[in-house]
Design a protein around this nucleic acid. Sequence first.
DNA 1: TGCCATCTTATGGGATATCATGGAATTTTA
DNA 2: TAAAATTCCATGATATCCCATAAGATGGCA
Lengths: 165, 165
Amino acid sequence: MIRRFRGESLHKVDAKGRVSVPAAFRRVLEEGDPDFSTGSSPNFVIVYGGVRGSCLEGYTINSISKVDKLISKLPRFSKDREMLERFINTQSTYMQLDETGRIVLSHRLKEKIGIGDEALFAGMGEKFQIWEPKNYQNELNALDSSFKNLSEDENPFLKLDQLQD
Amino acid sequence: MIRRFRGESLHKVDAKGRVSVPAAFRRVLEEGDPDFSTGSSPNFVIVYGGVRGSCLEGYTINSISKVDKLISKLPRFSKDREMLERFINTQSTYMQLDETGRIVLSHRLKEKIGIGDEALFAGMGEKFQIWEPKNYQNELNALDSSFKNLSEDENPFLKLDQLQD
DNA sequence: TGCCATCTTATGGGATATCATGGAATTTTA
DNA sequence: TAAAATTCCATGATATCCCATAAGATGGCA
């Protein structure tokens, strides 16, 4: 089975910026790092320049490579490519779990998304997100209400079954 | 034969949150997990963020993968995709039966649907649901009365045979 | 068809491992 | 050399594993 990032969990951020990454996510990060071997700690990538910018996004090495490959397909000096490279390559950083499964969020990263002493991890399939808990709740509420306002044929759940497979 | 989730049954939830999954459902979960082999225990997925949110929904690995695959076809950063990932991926979790056929419902999951020391399992074809027994009864009653108020041409039983295949 | 042996199921309890988290000690680096 | 970052150790809480048992269900077989 290819595991995906699933579920939510809330973790403490200590004075040094250390946070535990949810154990379930570690398994996915390990599987997604071609250089990982039992005993070592997986590498992965955090993108902080995200489309919406209100959370951090974690990618396995394999899934960020996929994104990189897509970007490389764009014309070399196009505005689009320039922009994506800026957001995804420039505004990102390699990370490595320590042996207790934690990472440290630098002052800069915490500031980016307004994190204090708690961080909310949210699984999103091929990536995961890190949110300041209140902002996350707002995001969920906003999502809920915008979902309620959708007409029948805008409902993404219903659109799903119309896709070919 | 492709087995489907059928029937209802009521099970005790012990102090640790452990519940037996109905034996009939285990067979379906086993068939629906490509990595299952006799001797091992099947994995599956519980979604708790359902559109209605009053029960948990269990999916086999195969059926949730179908959904994942459809979602992956949507453009990577589209609003639709984010919404679906949020409702289906974020609000879900991997589960594995133990060798006596039980799962453990975390405090969080029990809270979500108001479960105390009993859980009602309901087969729904491609998925099953877990309800707090009283809520389940209310749901049944509500369904009954709304069914009685339908006109002839709204009756879903009658609409069934009009579908093309 | 009545009875016994066996298997499966549902459930419980205790032991063990993993996880999340904190603090101290040590190294790096500016 | 002080501040920042990293490594190492410690611990309570939670989750997982392992074993136990009683009640049904199943299946032969006389």
